[in-house]
Every structure is written in C-alpha cells, then in structure tokens.
C-alpha cells in the first residue's frame, strides 16, 4: 500500500479504467475565501487530483490568464502561509484527494527549501511541481523531498529529448506532466494527433502515469487527450471562467459546472475504452 495519495489515486484510476481529471486553480483566485470551497466543489464535480497554484509575481511560463490570476491573488493578500492554510482546511473534509502545489522557485527558496517541504507536507500536500526547476537544477529539491512522502513532478515538453527524459525519470514521482504544446499555459489548442506517439515515447522510459496539460479547454479536447493519457490537466480555461465571478458562491458554482462537464466527457471515453488506461 503506497502512502502517497497521488500513487494511491492513480492506482484506483487504473483499476477502474477511469481517466483522471486534474483541475488547476490559483490559490486565492478569484478571492481567497473561495479557494477551499472551489476545491471541494471540483472534487464533487469529478476531479481526481487537484493542482493548486502558488501565486508568484513573475510567472514566466504562464500565459496572461494565470498571470492575471496570480496578480489578483497577490493583490488580495495571498501568501505562502495562506496557501498552506487552505490545504489544511481542505484536508479537514477530504483526506483522499491528492493536492499538488504548482509554483515557481523564488518564493519556495525564500521560505527555505526544507522548511517549505515540511510545512507543505504537514498541511497535506502530496506533490510539488516547480515550473522553473527542470531536472537539471533539481538536486536540492530532491534532497529536501527525500523521505517526506512528497513527490516532485516534472514537465516533459514535445521538444524534450530522450536523454533528458532519462535524466528526469529517477527524480520524478507521482506522474509525468506532459505539456501538449509549445507555448505558455493557455496559449494555442493542442494537437491531438501528435499526442499518441509522444505519450508512447514517454511510456517507453517510465512506468509513471502520464497526465497531459497546457492547451486543453473544452470537454471534447479533454476526451481526445483521455484516449491516450492517464489524466488530463485543465488550468487556464477554468481560471478564465472563475475570473468573471464576483462572489465566492458564483465561483464555486462555475467550478462545479466546469468539472462536471469535463467529467462527463472523460467518462464517455473511459466507458468506450475499458482497460486501455488500466496499464498497471
């Protein structure tokens, strides 16, 4: 029995032949008091794992939607401690859904890598995706994560070479996050046809589950991805929908509808391809 919730959840998904749904929201967006409720509503709507963005002032790999969400969250007074508070509050009612923090290096280093990892783990975080920390620079984080039951998740791009994948694999845990397009988050639409061979290439190097993100905004696109990947990450499209909400209630309702729409599309794929995703 694996102790990390990410491993456990992907095991369950594989056994059930259910494509995973991983929504991303920026912590504190559209308002700090909405985030925990949004997280619960996403799970109720069919999310299997949650990605929570740690707001940063200079989100170099993100597009305008997430950049704006980070800025709004910072303007509303979001801090790292409040991100941990949110995860802790979420964990009071949900001990099963994995939570992955997605952020950038500088706020983490300013807290101190070891302290950050300890505090995140204590709050109930299961995985860490540091956008600007490729495997080349991950030596320190690997040391900090050792023995902490927390996975470091790495991005793989269409342009990532086989030799880079091989170097990344020993450091990676949980799942591999395949970036489905060249660009920042929320830019162009993904190319579904190019996806299958790309994911096959990845699977030749690692037994870890593969989640695909960047450029997926509609249930139809999510379904296309779910035919070849273990899970689908949806970020900018959800964040954009949340951005227009002027109350926590409205945001929670939008999140719920969003997750349910995606879930229905993924379930249709899961039912049609029994066993295909259940590689394990």
């Amino acid at each position: 029995m694996t102790a990390n919730r990410i491993d456990r959840r992907f095991g369950e998904l594989a056994a059930a032949g259910r494509p995973g749904l991983i929504p991303y929201v920026t912590a504190g967006h559209p308002a700090p008091d909405a985030t925990v409720q949004i997280m619960h509503r996403l799970v109720a709507g069919g999310a299997d794992l949650l990605e929570l963005g740690v707001p940063f002032s200079d989100v170099m790999a993100d597009g305008p939607v997430i950049q704006n969400a980070c800025q709004r969250a910072l303007d509303a007074g979001m801090t790292l401690d409040r991100v941990f508070d949110m995860v802790r509050a979420f964990r009071e009612d949900d001990g099963d859904t994995p939570v992955i923090l997605m952020g950038y290096m500088n706020p983490i280093e300013r807290r101190g890598l070891d302290t950050f990892v300890e505090q995140a783990r204590a709050a109930g975080v299961d995985g860490l995706l540091i956008v600007d920390c490729p495997s080349d620079e991950a030596g320190d984080t690997r040391a900090a994560l050792a023995g902490q039951q927390m996975h470091q998740i790495f991005l793989v791009a269409p342009t990532t070479t086989d030799s880079r994948i091989e170097r990344m694999v020993p450091l990676a845990g949980g799942f591999v996050y395949y970036v489905s397009l060249k660009g920042v988050t929320g830019s162009a639409a993904l190319d579904a046809d190019a996806l299958a061979p790309a994911i096959e290439r990845l699977r030749a190097h690692t037994p870890l589950p593969v989640a695909v993100g960047f450029g997926i905004s509609t249930p139809a696109q999510a379904a296309d991805v779910a035919r070849v990947a273990d899970a689908v990450v949806i970020g900018s499209a959800l964040v954009k929908a949340l951005d227009g909400c002027d109350s926590a209630e409205a945001a929670v309702a939008v999140a719920g509808e969003f997750a349910e729409g995606m879930r229905a599309a993924l379930d249709a794929v899961g039912a049609a391809s029994t066993g295909q995703v259940a590689r394990a």
């Binding site: 170099m60 790999a61 290096m105 956008v131 600007d132 920390c133 490729p134 080349d136 620079e137 790495f154 991005l155 793989v156 791009a157 342009t159 990532t160 070479t161 880079r164 970036v179 060249k182 660009g183 920042v184």
Partner: peptide
C-alpha cells in the same frame, strides 16, 4: 547562474 526555466524552453536553450 544555471538554467531555471520551464522544461518547454530547455530544447531551445540547448
């Protein structure tokens, strides 16, 4: 120094 960028940029830098 180093190369603290998203994986999406690594191939271009190489």
């Amino acid at each position: 120094g180093g190369r603290f960028v998203s994986e999406t940029l690594m191939a271009a830098l190489e």
